[in-house]
Every structure is written in C-alpha cells, then in structure tokens.
Amino acid sequence: MKFTYETKKDTRSGFGAGMEYLSQNNPKVVALCADLIGSLKLEAFIKNSPERFFQTGIAEANMIGISAGLAIGGYIPFATTFANFGTGRVYDQIRQSVAYSGKNVKICCSHAGLTLGEDGATHQILEDIGLMKMLPSMVVINPCDYNQTKAATIAIAEYEGPVYLRFGRPVVPVFTPEDQKFEIGKAIHLIEGTDVTILATGHLVWEAIQAAEILEEKGIKADVLNIHTIKPLDTAAILASISKTGCVVTAEEHQINGGLGDSVAQFLSQNHPTPQEFVGVNDSFGESGKPADLMEKYGLNAAAIVEKSIKAIARK
C-alpha cells in the first residue's frame, strides 16, 4: 500500500480540533492552560465554552492540582501546556494527585521532542514518555498526524482514568483517515512485510513509511506498525509481526532510555527474544535548530530507520 497526503498540518492543531469537538459534544470536559493558549490551539474551545476554560497563568504545578480537584467534582479536565512543563516540571503533582489518587485527568502536551526547533533543549523534553509510562495506571499516547491526534483527543475523553497525550509543533503529512476511530492500546498495521518489523510512534511514523519505501527498492519488505499507544502496549500485534519477521526496529522522537523501544525490549526479552535496533536520541540533550536539521543530526529520520533495519536483519 502506498501512502499519500494532500496537506501537512501540525498535530497540535489536531488536538485543537478535537477540543473544539468536545466543547460542543461533551459538557463534562473542561480545559486548563498555563499561558500558552495559542500554542495549544485552544481558541475554538474557549470561544465555544468560555465558562469551561481556566487560565492558570504560568503555574503548571497548580494546574495539575486544580485538575485533580475538578476531576473529583465529576468533570474531565484537559490540562495543557508544553510537554516539558506538563510532565517533568510537575512530576510529583501528577504522581500524587493524579496517578496515585486515580483521577480522571488528561495531561495534553504540545512541543514534545526535538521538533519544536529553535527554542532548544530547555523546552525539548525527550524523557516525557518514560516519565509518564513509569507511573502506574497512566495511559501514554503519541499520535502521528493531525487526524489521529484529533481522534485520540476525542477518544480519551471517553476513557476513565489518567492519560498523557503527547503531540508537537511542526507540520507533518496528514495521511491517516479523517473519520478514523481511535482505539487506545490498539496498534495500526500500516505496511505488510516479512523481513523486518518497524514499530514507530508519533512523528516517526511517517518516517517509517518513507523508510519502508526505500527498503522496498532494496528488495527488503518491512512490516510497519503505528504504535500510537505506548502504554498499554499492543503486545499481541507486536508479537504477530515479529513472528513473521524475526527482527525489529523501534523509532521515536524520545530518548532511547525509557521510550517505546524500552517497552518493546522489555516485553520481547521475556516472551520472544528478538534482535532489536533503536532509533531515538542516545543519551543526550537536544539543541536549537530547524526541526528537519535536528532530526537529521540526531538520527531520527527515514534514513536512520533504513540503516537500523539493515543492521537488525543482519543480526537475525
């Protein structure tokens, strides 16, 4: 199957569109933001439902606590900011008041990873998937394009429990269907192949598709899965793919430590030991630069996935 796209959009705008839908269709949803309304694309939600929006100012820790309180009162809070400030900065507030207390809070963050670009490492969190997946009961979702982010936003409002939804700033191809249903924890099989499994999440899914096309020209058939949910991991889909291919490459805009690849390795080591290669940031901070240049420098693009695929196949 050939994947094409007509437009490029940012995943955060998909979040904004999902929130606009929820403003009209779910009166229990409330939104909070820490002085970043425009960056989170919340304008439509606020226009439709001003009484269900709470501006917290630049006070992320407070935002998490307020959200937990709103959840106790029966509302479904969507707490929003940049990924660095919505996870790492407020880890204990999330741990105690949300995860451990079992509160139905959705932590929704933009500007995750390197692709926020010029702001640099202070803002480029590459540890958030790890931080959030370590919390018992936390669901972790990293959708790949505008349509999927919109669908995920709508889906998590229906799910009861804490969720971390991660998205980003750059415009990327919109290639998933507009009317898709988003199933938490259910991987999406994108390309059939028998030589190597590629498990990708977030912005790396499109790169994985590109990589599969390059590999195909070399006579290598890649089996590509979109792992939009890192926790709970769709282990059945992963096992089914690896039973065919016998090797795997994981790809994510995140540290290798603690990311999707880590979760996959942990599962496979116990259930189906398999040669695995990792596309991710290798124990370093990011830096300022243009998004594509950064992805190139840190080895997070289709070329890197191709290289790691060839390596993984050689290790079978």
Binding site: D119, G120, A121, H123, E287, S288, G289, D293, K297
Partner: peptide
C-alpha cells in the same frame, strides 16, 4: 538559535 551554536534559544 542555529544548529551547533553556543547561543541556544535559551
């Protein structure tokens, strides 16, 4: 703010 600079965004 350019790649490989010491003058990072922040």
């Amino acid at each position: 703010r350019q790649l490989n600079s010491r003058l990072q965004g922040h």
